Amino acid sequence: MLSPRIKLRHLQAFLEVAKHRSFARAAERLAISQPGVSKTIRELEDILGTELFERGAQGVALSQSGLTFLRHAGPAIRTLEEGISAVGDAHQGARWLRVGALSTVESRLLPTAIRRWQAIQSADRVGVNVVAGRSAFLLSQLRLGELDLVVGRMTEAREIRDLTFEHLYYEPLMLVVRAGHPLAGIEPLAPGRLTDFPWVIPPPQTTLRQQVDSFCVRHSLDLPAQLLETLSLPISHRYTQDGDAIWVAPREAVIDDLEAGRVVELALRLEQQGGSVGLCTNASMEPSLALEGFCEVLREVAAER
């Protein structure tokens, strides 16, 4: 039974501090003073009989108790917000899904699944809000209840922990260059030649970057001086097409260009099997019929690969 001493303001303050890892930024978001946020968090910790945050010179971090509480508090607030929204939008038949998308599924899987899912809906209005970003950010939003689902390659992500991951298929990273690149068609290709050219690679602290670093270790390579670190597919594509850069790209992102001959895979495998692409959900959140239906469509589209 919920303690009557726990108020909505306690939960809101807790979620904002957990999200921003800062009492000051939480205070800005809540439009109250920083001492007011600190007092509210202390009240909540007194009620629960445990510390929810570990304070340090670099800010605050969730304690183990805080992580446990977050698994339930985030989805609870999200469910309440959905209930309020559902009452307000019932006459319009509105339906929304909030989906986190990693770059590994932005080109084919997710757009195809969204179109197919919307096509099989009834006359109800269907809305899908897609948030792109790094796995650490998207999974934290899923844990907070800010997202209903995260799709992409994330099995190496430490942030999955208590979330539920369902494998769909394996997706390799590839070394690709524009057609006519000096290294195109060279076989066998000595790994050392790669560092003569600029690279386009995922940013640090991403699951994809871990594979790039492992590749460099296996072949005793140092990253070249000219680097473009980005998860943006349009920027990576244009930068690669207009120069001599080597792009470490998810296969899905370049499959159309490979088939059209606009880019070429180098004769040096970065990965053999690739990473597991799948969908991640928060088991503490009650899935809606819309979410269950969308996940089923994702499975169907993935199986057609």
Rank of each mutant, 00 (worst) to 15 (best):
S85Y: 07
R299H: 06
Q12G: 06
A86S: 13
P4N: 08
L227I: 12
S38I: 14
V263P: 00
P172T: 12
V17E: 03
S85D: 09
V150K: 00
P204E: 15
V151D: 01
V212L: 05
T104M: 02
F23D: 01
E43Q: 14
L80V: 12
L289K: 04
E81P: 02
L48M: 13
T104L: 01
A249R: 04
V301H: 00
V277T: 13
R158C: 07
R218T: 11
H91N: 10
V212C: 07
P250N: 11
P188T: 08
E43A: 14
S135H: 05
A26N: 07
I120T: 09
V217N: 08
V131M: 06
V177Y: 02
P172R: 14
K7Y: 06
I77V: 15
V37T: 08
R55N: 10
Q273T: 09
G100W: 02
L270A: 04
Q92Y: 12
V176H: 00
Q273I: 05
V264A: 09
R134A: 09
G275P: 03
L11E: 04
R5I: 09
S33R: 11
T281W: 03
F165T: 10
V130E: 02
S85M: 09
A113D: 02
Q92W: 12
R262Q: 15
R116E: 00
A225Q: 10
T164G: 07
A26V: 10
G293E: 03
D162I: 11
A157S: 15
P35S: 10
V297Y: 04
D196Q: 15
I32Y: 01
Q272S: 08
L183I: 13
I84E: 06
Q64S: 14
G192F: 04
E304W: 02
